[in-house]
Write a protein that binds this DNA or RNA. Structure first.
Lengths: 144, 144
DNA sequence: GCTTGACCTCAAGTCGACTTGAATTCGTAG
DNA sequence: CTACGAATTCAAGTCGACTTGAGGTCAAGC
């Protein structure tokens, strides 16, 4: 049986052992057994961790992520709720697109104060339009 | 002079007074004067707050946001860095798009375990490809 | 002139997501 | 068989972004 111990999972996923233990604590992932004291993880955990990383990128809290793709890949939430989260994501994508464009404008526009540049104002307004709460967001502390 | 006091700014922006004071503390926004004890804000603060909201949505830390659009709308960062942030945003947008598609797939696919569904796996892989740290993300506690 | 309500300051508390550290236990290589 | 390194548990600490609460100030309307 090709089980992975925590260091292996950490190396392959980039998630620290301490974080993996924490994820197991809160029931976000599960180890399949123990070899002595050591947790043994199945290979599917790597895919789950990718999903978790995506969820965090989108600003979902860990408990929301758990609800979206249950421990075994089973959707805990009703379809409608999932679609609603997808809709949130759509809005967020629009917001980020506008922010990206605004950022590029700021980088390139020679005007001294953007606050008075009509292009700038329009970009910001566009962004503001559809920004209704993406449910929640949490920390993503970056890989040091 | 049509200055706004903190309650007015709060009402128009949806940002709580306590948060506005905090933003001023850390130099993210500035009030133009005082009327007695009361802070008076210029109208431009509303636009700034939109920008701040966008930045938070994207997961930028407050100090990063401050650096991107200086207090007066002056870009504190060199163009290259701004473009790099825009690139980060692009990657993030791709990730979120993949997550959105994955979510819709999970909502609609009748398979009992997605972990074995090839469509699902492909979506997750696609998402994993270009997800290199959006710099940092922080809390967005939602409007209660 | 007095009340009222919106504002003020400052210190301390909260929350999620981890990290850190100390003390301990394994399993494998030599 | 022993030493070593990798893993374990558990409590406590950290960080950013605010919020909360106590106690105080002020200007406008009656």
């Amino acid at each position: 049986m090709k089980f992975l111990d925590i260091g292996e999972v950490s190396a392959r996923s980039g998630v620290k052992p301490s974080a993996l233990r924490y994820y197991e604590d809160i029931g976000l992932i599960a180890s399949v057994s123990r070899h002595g004291l050591r947790r043994q993880f199945g290979a599917e955990v790597l895919l789950q961790l990718k999903l978790i990383a995506m969820g965090k990128l989108a600003g979902f809290a860990l408990d929301e992520i758990a609800a979206m793709f249950g421990k075994a890949g089973a959707p805990v939430l009703p379809r409608a709720v999932l679609h609603q989260k997808a809709d949130d994501l759509d809005r967020q994508i629009h917001g980020l697109t506008a922010l990206r464009d605004t950022l590029r404008h700021v980088a390139d526009c020679p005007a001294p104060s953007h606050m008075e540049c009509p292009t700038f104002r329009r970009l910001v307004e566009v962004a503001g339009k559809r920004g209704r709460r993406p449910s929640r967001r949490k920390a993503v502390p970056r890989v040091d």
